[in-house]
Design a binder for these strands. Structure first.
Lengths: 303, 303
DNA sequence: TAATTGATTTTTAATAATAAAAAACATATA
DNA sequence: TATATGTTTTTTATTATTAAAAATCAATTA
């Protein structure tokens, strides 16, 4: 068996849909370059699609023009139920589920084949995902397609926060050195307002906090973007996402604390009070670390 | 065609070698588990190897024992000339060569297939290498197996050194906080001595400096190892290696300057003079940055 | 002669196939 | 009955194959 012609099928469905929406009997369809562009595929695929519609008699050729002969019916559409999401995402989803649900525990070994079978993908897709994922430092390759889930231990958290601390403090001091007319300042003010708004509706919308959190950290970095720091933050945010997945219990309290800490930091920043902001950030980081450690330890003991 | 039985051939050669070295006619060979262990292969492979030697009449079976019937001759060995190094390394070597020699220039696009053909590997090996390599931030994946070599520009160097600066200063201050009895101190003293020794023979041995450089930075980190920082240093050392490959011209002067800077830093450290060490390290980092920028710019303009 | 169409070639993505190598199992021998 | 040997099954790594999709080229028409 060779690859599936999903793109072709999807394109056929798309074109049928477009016709039934926008066209009527005897309309002339556009040239195939235009259609290709519209459907965002190559002309070859567009062409094959049109030919398919000709074979379905939806389109007929008349003196070198192609016109609509009959409007699409339900049965003409391909059933794309089984196509599913890209393999890529499929492995990712399965794998993250597996570690989040504890199916794969820290220290465990697992094989590519195993994962491929369980996630319904081929081993290559799995392996490429794992190689990409390995940069997070949570898994390690071993000989013969074996991998090991590294232990998520105290040392890992310590190291993670050591770097995070360095980066955030650095980002803070750089931000504070921006001159008064820099457009980042009004953005920071806006962010503070948004924090206050959310704080009022925290009872119901406490889950919206993660977006604010993201915005805050992005804004801090935005003044002097750095790809290496950015890369590190991907790890951070994965690890947090990874851990708090389990532990939805005290999410609300956690967010309440964090939102107040953010407000404190931002307020100091807006007052150009570097010292105060530093102290607040320091506190914020240690809260975050403590909270992560709690979750991590809780998880470990519940195995 | 399916995979090559290189391991089998290699094992045959190994066993033939072992026999001609250690055994003589009519000796009894060990059981196959032992041989497998010796040759570091599975018993299946060991078995197949022994059977092959039986078919070559080097070994014959005699009442459930296997004895040496004749000693190996040259012709029995497999020719492993064409086996070559693992595909993995092959791609790596080719790819690094290509970027070092300027065949692939910053900003260039290249395809997996192209690289596979040129390096004599399959596309999968290539792709996996590229995925792994991409964590250095020097290449980026694009749709349809295309990749782009990112431009090695001023911004890249700035970002690299921004992080390096943070990490080295941090490492320095942590190191300085070690108590007097910590075993790292004598190591540092030793390193200083080695620097001084090398300095005397710098005229001839200036290339040995890179080892000292490595040792110095490793020692700084060793006090508090951190996998994220370590990961970053892999990028750093790759980038340096990558760039100085071109520019062997002033290697000697560069190393002379660097060795003096190291000596200065270490001396301050041993005197527990954090301030002095910091200043020296600051200078060392800016020399390194300037030097890298020179090389990078020189390269760019010579395209 | 510019734009469209038709045909061909190249490249890419995926599975299938095959053999190597490892592991598991069963048998035999001391 | 423990250990070594022989056999079978499973897993892994690599190439071949196939079709999708893109890109290129050639021809045709307006």
């Amino acid at each position: 068996m060779s690859r599936q012609n999903d793109l072709f099928k999807k394109t056929v469905n798309q074109l049928l849909h477009n016709i039934s929406l926008n066209m009527s009997l005897d309309d002339i369809i556009e040239n195939d370059s235009a259609i290709a562009k519209q459907l965002e595929v190559s002309r070859s695929t567009a062409r094959k699609t049109i030919e398919h519609l000709i074979s379905l008699k939806v389109i007929i050729k008349q003196d070198s023009q192609r016109i609509i002969a009959c409007l699409p019916t339900e049965q003409m559409y391909f059933d794309l139920q089984d196509v599913g999401p890209p393999k890529e995402e499929q492995v990712e989803k399965y794998f993250l589920d597996a570690i989040l649900s504890g199916k794969i525990k820290p220290g465990d070994h697992f094989s590519e084949l195993e994962l491929a079978r369980q996630s319904g993908c081929n081993t290559i897709a799995v392996r490429e995902f794992l190689i990409r994922f390995s940069r997070f430092g949570l898994i390690e390759k071993e000989p013969r397609s074996q991998w090991q889930m590294k232990t998520f231990d105290r040392a890992f958290v310590d190291q993670l926060f050591e770097v995070r601390h360095l980066f955030e403090m650095h980002a803070l001091s750089r931000f504070m050195s921006l001159d008064d007319h820099n457009p980042q300042w009004p953005k920071l003010q806006q962010l503070l307002d948004d924090h206050r708004t959310l704080k009022k509706h925290l009872a119901t919308k406490f889950q919206d906090f993660s977006k604010l959190d993201q915005r805050f950290h992005d804004l801090l970095q935005a003044a002097y973007p750095n790809q290496f720091i950015h890369q590190f933050y991907e790890i951070i945010s994965f690890v947090f996402h990874y851990h708090y997945q389990w532990d939805k219990g005290d999410e609300r309290e956690r967010n309440t604390v964090a939102i107040n800490e953010h407000i404190e930091i931002i307020s100091h920043m807006l007052l150009k009070d570097l010292m105060g902001a530093t102290v607040s950030l320091e506190r914020h980081l240690s809260t975050a670390k403590r909270s992560l450690l709690n979750t991590a330890l809780y998880t470990k003991s519940s195995e």
